[in-house]
């Protein structure tokens, strides 16, 4: 199954940068070398089982935008699963950005009325603390510009975990039966006596499903990570732990690749918890977090090995529809 993902936004807003972080495991520092994208760069990313993300990174210079909206209109906007529109938080041409954005919404309505729309207020790292008020203002502005349709707005930056939060939410909408995966993860968590089990996609380390709570499906459509309480459970675990974990592992994977090694697995017995991170299926990794000090990592690893087949099957089902 293919899902078309449109990446839109003004030139320099950071589309190619985020794509290179999430899908190519490049560090943020290398993005400064990226040139402007010419026309559309298409990428196919095998994501989960049979789910293939078809990424359309659309160069944002005016000439290209004008052509997307006119001559290329049907090519660009048909069969879209998700449109991600990126706004540079420091843009000095917000009105122009909004105008293009509205035109793109029209295109979507015409050719892919069921597509979901995600708006990223990007380069949040450039805003001095406190960031929340500036973000809220932007969010309001974007919501007003979006009319009736529901849109999800995230504040993001390639320099922290916020990017993983946004993208985990985005891909989550593309996995039809994520809730089934989640149910089985919960069963698995109980079997392991685990506080929590998290399933990550293998190359991006985006969160596919979790045992306790799903990555929040953005109903309130606002999220910045810093003061949201979603994902926090009775044990008071850090609400940003999923995206922070993605970020930490991605950074370590990059560190490994620099010494021509490949990250394979991790186990930790720390003061407060025991955890393992291991391959689950061909394209997922699982993280098992246990707070019961009597449980050993060896037992957890064994459980993962035994659950592999089941999840391999489930994963096939979850995207086959």
């Amino acid at each position: 199954m293919r899902k078309k993902v449109l990446l839109m936004g003004a030139s320099g807003s950071g589309k190619t940068s985020m794509r290179s972080l999430i899908f190519s495991n490049n560090p943020a520092s290398l993005t400064a070398r990226l040139g402007a994208t010419i026309d559309v760069e298409q990428n196919h990313v095998r994501f989960l089982g049979d789910l293939i993300l078809n990424l359309w990174d659309c160069g944002g210079q005016d000439a290209f935008m004008d052509s997307y909206l006119t001559t290329q209109r049907s090519t660009i906007f048909q069969q879209v699963g998700v449109m991600i529109y990126v706004f540079d938080v420091e843009t000095r041409e917000m009105n122009k950005d909004l105008e293009y954005y509205r035109d793109c919404l029209d295109g979507l309505r015409q050719f892919s009325p069921s597509a979901s729309v995600f708006l990223l207020v990007h380069k949040m790292d450039l805003i001095r603390e406190p960031r929340q008020p500036s973000f809220e203002k932007k969010r309001k502005e974007l919501q007003d510009a979006s009319g009736e349709g529901t849109v999800s707005v995230f504040g993001t930056s390639i320099y922290d975990e916020s990017l993983y939060k946004a993208w985990s939410n985005i891909v989550h909408t593309l996995i039809p039966n994520a809730s089934i995966l989640s149910k089985h993860l919960t069963t698995f968590a109980v079997a392991c006596n685990a506080t929590e089990v998290i399933l990550f996609e293998r190359t991006t380390f985006l969160v596919v499903a979790t045992s306790s709570t799903l990555p929040d499906i953005p109903s309130t459509a606002s999220s910045l990570g810093s003061d949201t309480t979603d994902g926090e459970d009775a044990r008071g675990l850090d609400p940003t732990r999923y995206e922070r974990t993605s970020e930490l592992i991605k950074a370590f994977k990059y560190a490994c690749s620099r010494v021509r090694e490949e990250f394979h697995s991790l186990e930790m017995e720390l003061y407060d918890f025991t955890a393992i991170l291991a391959e689950m299926t061909r394209n997922t990794y699982v993280m098992v977090i246990v707070h019961d000090p009597t449980i050993e990592t060896a037992a957890l690893k064994l459980n993962v090995r035994m659950a592999r087949r089941k999840f391999e099957e489930l994963q096939g089902d979850s995207v086959a529809l």
Partner: peptide, 27 residues
């Protein structure tokens, strides 16, 4: 460098999954 990065990751994991609720602690 790899060791430095590894340590950085482990240092960051510690507080991330630290439960502040009533949980069992290492004795």
């Amino acid at each position: 460098n790899l060791c430095c990065d590894y340590l950085l990751m482990l240092n960051s994991f510690g507080p991330l999954y630290k439960s502040i609720g009533p949980g069992r602690q290492r004795q």
